[in-house]
């Protein structure tokens, strides 16, 4: 029998990173400030984890200017979406096993 822990995604084990990817999976795109508000995170903390997700190519970044103010929008990539699905399946499997 295979161990479901192996299927857990190391990057997404972190709560905030998992939350970011879940919001981006449910929406076409989301900008930094809206994410910050929704997740009640600090600038620094959110930026760090966004960087980590970007480095793994789980999300893509698009910087632009809206009314002369910098606006950073994030999207989940195909790779990120697959990782998110696999991680969800693994968590589900774990919880099922626990309940047996």
């Amino acid at each position: 029998m295979k161990n479901p822990f192996e299927n857990l995604d190391k990057i997404l084990e972190h709560r905030l990173r998992l939350q970011i990817v879940s919001v981006l999976s449910a929406n076409e795109s989301y900008d930094f400030n809206a994410l910050k508000e929704l997740l009640a995170a600090t600038d620094g903390n959110l930026a760090t984890h966004l960087k980590a997700l970007e480095r793994e190519k789980y999300i893509s970044v698009n910087k632009s200017f809206v009314d002369r103010k910098p606006n950073t929008r994030y999207k989940v990539t195909e790779r990120g979406r697959n990782a998110f699905k696999k991680h969800l399946d693994a968590m589900e499997e774990l919880i099922k096993q626990q309940r047996k």
């Binding site: 857990l8 998992l18 939350q19 919001v23 449910a26 929406n27 929704l38 997740l39 968590m91």
Partner: peptide, 23 residues
């Protein structure tokens, strides 16, 4: 690795976030 209740909390927070971020 985290205790299992943490994963249940993860799923709970994902569910609520996805709904709140869309609806």
């Amino acid at each position: 690795m985290k205790p299992n209740t943490a994963y249940e909390e993860d799923i709970q927070s994902i569910r609520s976030l996805m709904e709140r971020s869309v609806k």
